[in-house]
Amino acid sequence: MKRSGVIWSWFWMILGILYFFLPLVATFLFSLRAKLGVLSFLAYTQLFHDSNFIKDFSFSVLWGLLTIIVGIVIFVPTAFWVRLKVPQVRTAVEFVTLLPFVIPAIVFVFGLVRTFSHPPFLIVNSPALLIAGYIVLSMPYMYRSIDTGLRSIDVRTLTEAGQSLGAGWGTILFRIILPNIRVAILSGAFLSFAIVMGEYILAQYLAKPAFAPFLAYLIQEKAYEPAAATIISFALTWACMGIIQLVGRGGPQAQLAGGH
């Protein structure tokens, strides 16, 4: 590569890093200025002593975990079955999974409220509706991650090999398919988790305790704590991404179709 090319590469890289990290560093530094004249973690301490923060943050973590579990239970068998038995409907299913990108969240929430606030579906106050909503919002990430994972293995042959050895559908799914798309599921799971942690509209309009509405409230009421909460939220997301990297590194599943 020419010298000028190298210089430009570095230029764009440094520009990118500054663009992404400068606001974050500024937010972090700002979060340390709660005590006048010195840098301290006072905003973080106060945040962790705020019972509403603990409660709303815990709820969001709980909603996030439930969304992941229910999402896996719904999407793994669906993607598996579509790939194995009805590949002709894959395009239609992919279109459906992309709908949350097209339909604004606010429209979606009002749709939920209208539909589920009258008998026989009077569940508007149930956390189940919130989780169902989160599952729909995270569907593009979860389903497509799983589908990408399934694409990297020979689903049909592995399934038939399992069947010929006496395995039923449950065994095939949990002992053959799932372990081989583990990284894809984790990617989808953590993306879903990040969606839930940052999602504001659903929780706000369904009047459920969650981290994003708490953050919005905090921004209106306090100065330094919102910055601290933002940094905590980022740290959590990065931790999740780090776990994906750790789990996805090497391992027997890294090869899948090759080896000959």
Partner: peptide, 17 residues
């Protein structure tokens, strides 16, 4: 899975995990 018939595939189909 109820036949007791073994099968060897062209693509080996060993379980990677």
């Amino acid at each position: 899975n109820q036949r007791n018939v073994g099968m060897v595939f062209q693509a080996y189909a060993l379980f990677p995990n």
